[in-house]
Design a protein around this nucleic acid. Structure first.
Lengths: 143, 143
DNA sequence: ACTTTTACTTGTACTATACAACTATATATA
DNA sequence: TATATATAGTTGTATAGTACAAGTAAAAGT
């Protein structure tokens, strides 16, 4: 009973949070310059280094065609660069450009500032614990 | 430093979670029968009772036109019903139908079961605390 | 050499959303 | 009261993000 309530609360609050966070991305109060998808793609390349379309699609669990278009869009904006894999002519390798890194840092900073404001009343312990629990939640995510 | 790291972790994990949860809704492993937007609209009507388009748009912070279409779609599927406000001919009031309640309950149950599986290793204390922290996060959400 | 598999791109379609134009009704004001 | 303005909602149009299917080119297997 107790457990059921906690899970219901978690389900409710997480759905609500997603609703709001996604709304925010579409609103005029949007954080930063990058679309959510672009932000995540740049972050992925920045953290894990060059990757090809298939790897990106797997990392995000999205269709290859989706990542193919997202990558092409960012390539167009010069935020990522494409190079061909010498050992496999089918493959394009994408890497974040200096401009992309810059843009990512700017946007990340804005996002962090938002979280900073939202969580300013929280103690360090609460923030740390919350981060750890979120990490566990993501690790346990069922595909 | 410590604080910065917690916030970065929270930002990272929340964005990742949203990415996955939204992916899941579009995938063949989608939870239940309802679109995310339909689920939220039904839940809103179920919890807060009949409402008109404008109220729903405000509750979700979405454009009226978006809610107008979502409501019309659910009305078409007989999951919600429309009635006119006798005191104001412009207004349509929407309410969840028995079929809508049934569908909502079915989907909610499936969503809860997923969370139940994902969180099965968590102690009651962890689940309760996580729920409370999420609630605080949503309360502090900056529009 | 031929077939099959793989990596990616492109065409098409759908959901979710916003904004703008429009309709109908209600309210305010001259 | 007649007209002007405001409000509630619908509908047209556009965009992001996604999937699936068809197509192209390169690699690997037989």
């Amino acid at each position: 009973m107790q457990e059921k309530n906690s899970i219901e609360l978690i389900e409710y609050e997480l759905t609500t949070f997603i609703r709001r966070a996604v709304y925010l991305d579409n609103s005029e109060k949007k954080i930063g310059n990058l679309e959510r998808s672009a932000y995540l793609l740049l972050r992925q390349l920045d953290e894990f280094g060059p990757a090809r379309v298939k790897e990106l699609a797997e990392a995000f669990k999205l269709d290859i065609s989706t990542l193919s278009r997202q990558a092409a869009a960012l390539e167009n904006k010069k935020l990522i660069s494409r190079s061909s894999d010498p050992s496999d002519g089918r493959v394009s390798l994408f890497d974040i450009t200096p401009g992309g890194k810059q843009m990512l840092q700017t946007d990340k900073q804005m996002r962090l500032e938002r979280y900073h404001s939202m969580l300013k009343e929280w103690s360090n312990e609460e923030k740390e614990l919350f981060g750890k629990l979120l990490m566990r939640l993501n690790d346990a995510f069922i595909d």
